[in-house]
Amino acid sequence: MSIKPAVAATPDPLAGNRQVPGLPSILLEPTVRAALLEDLGHAGDLTTDAIVPSHAQSQTRLVARQDGVLAGLDLARLAFQLIDPSMRFEAHLRDGARLSQGSAIATVRGSARAMLTAERTALNFLCHLSGVATATASIADSIRDYRARVTCTRKTLPGLRALQKYAVRVGGGSNHRFGLDDAVLIKDNHVAMAGSVREAVARARAGIGHMVKIELEVDTLAQLDEALALGVDVVLLDNMSIDDLRTAVGMAQGRAILEASGRVTPETAPSVAATGVDLIAIGWITHSARTLDIGLDA
Rank of each mutant, 00 (worst) to 15 (best):
P30K: 05
G16D: 09
R18F: 15
P24L: 11
V32I: 15
Q19F: 05
A8E: 13
D45F: 06
P30C: 01
I26W: 14
I51G: 01
H42C: 13
V32H: 07
N17C: 12
E38A: 08
A34G: 15
T48E: 04
L23N: 00
A43L: 08
A50P: 05
D45N: 08
V7P: 07
L14F: 07
H42Q: 15
D49S: 10
P13E: 03
T48V: 06
L37Y: 09
A50N: 12
T10C: 12
G41S: 03
D45Y: 08
T31M: 07
E29T: 14
L27C: 15
T47N: 00
P30W: 00
I51N: 01
D45G: 06
D45A: 10
A43M: 09
P11Y: 07
H42S: 15
H42R: 14
H42P: 09
G22L: 11
A9E: 14
D12Y: 02
S25E: 14
V20F: 06
L37V: 12
L27F: 13
L23T: 01
L36S: 03
P13L: 02
E29F: 00
P21S: 08
P11I: 07
L14H: 09
A15T: 01
L27G: 12
V20N: 07
L36M: 08
A43I: 12
A35C: 13
G16L: 10
V7F: 06
T47W: 00
R18C: 15
S25G: 03
V20C: 06
P11C: 04
V7S: 11
I26T: 13
A35K: 09
T48P: 01
L40G: 10
G44K: 05
I26C: 13
G22I: 10
V32P: 12
V32N: 12
V32T: 13
R18Q: 15
E29D: 06
A9S: 13
L36Q: 08
R18D: 14
A8Q: 14
Q19G: 01
V20K: 07
H42Y: 14
R33W: 00
A35D: 13
T31G: 03
L23H: 02
P24G: 09
R18G: 13
L23V: 02
P24H: 13
T47Y: 00
I51E: 00
V7K: 13
D49A: 05
P11V: 10
N17I: 11
E38M: 00
T10H: 09
T48M: 02
D12M: 02
A35S: 15
I26P: 01
P30H: 02
E29V: 11
V7W: 05
H42L: 15
A9F: 05
E38V: 06
E29K: 08
T10N: 11
D39P: 03
A9I: 09
P11M: 07
L46D: 06
D12F: 01
V7I: 14
A8T: 15
V7L: 13
P24Q: 12
T10I: 14
A43S: 09
A50W: 11
I26D: 14
S25K: 13
L14W: 05
P11D: 09
A43W: 08
L23P: 01
I51Y: 00
E38N: 05
L36C: 04
L14T: 06
L23Q: 04
G44L: 02
Q19C: 05
P13S: 04
G44D: 09
